[in-house]
Amino acid sequence: MKKHFVLILLLVAVLICGGYLKVSYVIQPGDTLYEISKKFKISISTILDWNTLLDPLKLRVGQQITLPQPEGFLYTVKQGDNLYTIARMFFTTVNDIRIANDLSSDFIKPGQELFVPRSCIGKAFNTEKGYIWPVYGILSSPYGWRVHPITKQMSFHTGIDIAAPEGTPVFSSTNGVVSFAGERSGYGLMVEIKTGKDVVRYGHLSKICVYKGQSIERGSIIGRVGSTGVSTGPHLHFEVLANNNTINPLAILPSTSKVYVLKEGVEEIGAGGE
């Protein structure tokens, strides 16, 4: 009993100090992602983000998976990243990332893994129009006619491109149900979500964190930015269809100058930047 009590104290101390645990779980007969998600109190999308090779519809008994406690996500620092830019990728604050990783300074280096708790993600989603920006990045190609960057021919761009580092999380812009999750010509790895009469597509992903038929809430992680399919570099292709016709996504998204907006009462501490 005494050893068990000490172990609990140590576990609580690790969590309070800003650490996280990687729990290894061996899939048992009868397990489903839903049951595992309930047991460990983490979302199915989080499980899939941590276990890239896991087939959500064909779990193998005896297969070992990794589950984070508390729920959260890893991001590998790239050249040119800083805490300010990473906080924006997760729509959270620099201070939240400092605390979660027990950082005594703002110094980070390429290759370093940072943990971002699910509980702090979304503090800066701008929800004024219902749809939120699915990724924090730079608008690199608008909707409409353009010279295709690869074919160099005039073609109609059915969505917008948002450039961001590979591995940047992609969040569902709205509630809905996943109608497609996989590889599609041109789009590379793509997720399609139906919401009422609208269909939203997220293309060129490096990783997919959802499966067909899954119900998704706005702000849930659905994948990571990549450069799969017909692409010249890491970015998200974001496309919206209303009544089977594509529309300019900028018409339903908040202003490009208000992609990241901290909710009232939430303060960014020591971030600097723009």
Results as ranks from 00 to 15, higher is better:
L83H: 08
S227R: 06
C209S: 12
M190Q: 15
E35Q: 10
L74F: 00
V170M: 02
T93W: 01
T174E: 07
N82K: 05
Y75L: 04
V261R: 11
H235G: 06
Y20L: 00
S257V: 09
L114H: 13
V170W: 04
G80C: 10
P68I: 01
L83E: 04
G30V: 02
I193F: 01
E264T: 08
G270P: 06
V23Q: 02
I86A: 01
K129M: 05
S24H: 12
L83R: 15
I138F: 14
F5V: 12
I99R: 11
G30R: 05
L74E: 03
K212C: 06
Q64G: 02
Y260H: 00
P149E: 02
L241W: 15
N245L: 15
W50D: 01
A251S: 11
S179D: 07
I138A: 14
Y260W: 09
V116W: 00
I108R: 01
G188Q: 06
S255A: 03
D49T: 11
I16V: 08
S185Q: 12
F125I: 09
I252C: 14
G213C: 14
S257Q: 15
F238A: 07
G30K: 12
K78C: 06
K152M: 11
I47W: 00
H235I: 07
V12R: 03
I222H: 15
I108K: 01
V259F: 05
F90C: 08
